[in-house]
């Protein structure tokens, strides 16, 4: 087992909803002012070892993208700290968040939004490494050609603009841009969600090849359980801002522990199992503005008891390398 590359230590992120103009006027006139707080991520701890791919899975509002952005240094955590090789990835500078390392890079979900439409893709890929002196400006052209080749694009394409590429090709460009910074850790936020199935396979293969060639460490965020199973060594399942289960991929898929994980697996349609009796999870995903007390999953959980309403279960070890946040694993639900 190699050393921890990334250490996420009791990290929380709160977003405060700023009052609108009307509400501020009402506040000045003496109306009670309420600030709404979204706890997008609460008290998450996770260590990632060098060379490992950790999958973050969850439904909307579970905080997986926020956690990804905290890891990438786009947001600074409200509480706790994120250490990358023993140094923080970002710090709060007044209202701005300053990113402190170029070793962590991010690939965003939508390659139509993440590339500047008015920049030639060669310039897009070269901008970061030239700015940060990873490569000299006069060598940038060859460097970009090498990066494009690495992600399976013809280097002669570097004079083209993003609109001349398909979705799959654009995602390759976005990956090339991240790799050009020579990162030690890559955060991929739903990198294949907007791609067609046949193109998805191409990008996943590319990711697996790059991982092997460059010994990449990565956080792979997705809502697609099949995709995450395919590329991750460990998987963290998130629900309403908390990690509810963390396990090596094979063990998690063979025997999920947390009732939410189990329910999620059951409600996923699968190819080739034939017409299926759906046993969907009852109820809605609660709003992160007003999460339920105690265990966030208790209103939808078939096994919930009185204790689940009172007390939030801690994420605790249930086996070697496995952890789950459920009262059923210790002390019961009464």
């Amino acid at each position: 087992m190699s050393a921890a590359l990334l250490d996420i230590d009791h990290v929380s992120k709160r977003f405060v909803k700023r009052p609108s103009l009307g509400e501020r006027i009402a506040g000045l006139l003496g109306a009670g002012r309420k600030t709404e707080i979204v706890r997008a991520v609460s008290d998450v701890s996770l260590t990632v070892r060098k060379g490992e791919v950790v999958g973050l899975v969850g439904e909307s509002g579970c905080g997986k993208s926020t956690l990804g952005r905290i890891i990438a240094g786009i947001y600074a955590p409200s509480d706790g700290k994120v250490l990358f090789g023993n140094a923080p990835v970002a710090k709060e500078q007044g209202r701005r968040t300053e990113k402190l390392t170029t070793q962590v890079q991010m690939v965003h979900q939508d390659p139509f939004a993440s590339l500047n439409p008015r920049m030639r893709i060669g310039d897009t890929v070269a901008e970061g490494p030239v700015t940060h002196n990873i490569v000299k400006a006069r060598d940038a052209d060859a460097y970009v050609a090498d990066m494009l080749g690495r992600v399976g694009l013809d280097p002669s394409y570097r004079r083209r603009f993003p609109h001349q590429f398909s979705g799959g090709q654009r995602q390759r460009i976005a990956i090339a841009r991240a790799l050009a910074m020579k990162p030690d850790l890559l955060v991929l936020d739903e990198p294949v969600a907007s791609l067609d199935v046949s193109i998805q396979a191409q990008v996943l293969n590319l990711f697996m090849d790059l991982r092997q060639d460059l010994d990449l460490t990565a956080i792979f965020i997705s809502h697609d359980l099949g995709v995450v199973r395919h590329v991750s060594d460990r998987v963290a399942i998130m629900y309403l801002g908390r990690i509810v289960e963390l396990a090596p991929t094979a063990e998690l898929y063979a025997a999920p522990n947390h009732p939410y994980t189990k329910a999620l697996f059951e409600s996923v349609p699968r190819v080739g199992v034939g017409r299926k009796d759906f046993r969907p999870i009852a109820g809605e995903i609660p709003s992160p503005l007003h999460p339920p007390n105690g265990c966030h999953f208790h209103p939808r959980c078939p096994l919930a008891g009185p204790r689940c309403k009172r007390e939030a279960p801690a994420l605790s070890a249930i086996g070697p390398g496995r952890a789950s946040a459920c009262h059923l694993n210790g002390g019961g639900t009464d």
């Binding site: 199935v197 046949s198 998805q200 396979a201 191409q202 996943l204 293969n205 697996m208 697609d224 359980l225 099949g226 995709v227 199973r229 395919h230 590329v231 991750s232 991929t249 094979a250 699968r270 190819v271 080739g272």
Partner: peptide, 16 residues
């Protein structure tokens, strides 16, 4: 159908 990840061993190269 062949390119659906869930139908393959994890980490295996996907037919594309």
């Amino acid at each position: 159908l062949a390119s659906v990840p869930a139908e393959h061993e994890p980490g295996e190269r996907l037919p594309q």
